[in-house]
């Protein structure tokens, strides 16, 4: 399974990319397992707080992923 990851603010700075394609995820992959894959690639992300949105809607970490999902890691917001 393949999903598209969107990164913002400090997450993007640490990874050095604003968008990443995660490929070869198992069929039972969740938001949490996508995060674990990203952390393997970039250990500096470990322990950083972030909410997660799948296809523009906030979801819990155990949300199962589907082929083609857009998964966004959202650091604590600071607009205004």
């Amino acid at each position: 399974m393949r999903v598209r990851i969107r990164l913002f603010a400090g997450w993007r700075d640490r990874l050095g990319e604003e968008e990443v394609l995660l490929e070869g995820l198992p069929p039972d992959a969740t938001v949490e397992s996508a995060r674990a894959r990203l952390e393997e690639r970039c250990p500096a992300l470990r322990g950083l707080p972030a909410a997660v949105a799948v296809n523009l809607v906030q979801v819990p970490p155990d949300r199962p992923l589907r082929e083609g999902d857009e998964v966004a890691f959202l650091p604590p917001v600071s607009g205004g």
């Binding site: 913002f8 950083l48 707080p49 966004a72 650091p75 604590p76 917001v77 600071s78 607009g79």
Partner: peptide
């Protein structure tokens, strides 16, 4: 609302609220 603010100082910068 997913908007993020970076404060740029004379000697560096920081994303607000990230605790980094």
């Amino acid at each position: 609302v997913p908007i993020w603010k970076k404060e740029v100082f004379e000697d560096g910068s920081e994303w607000v609220g990230e605790g980094a």
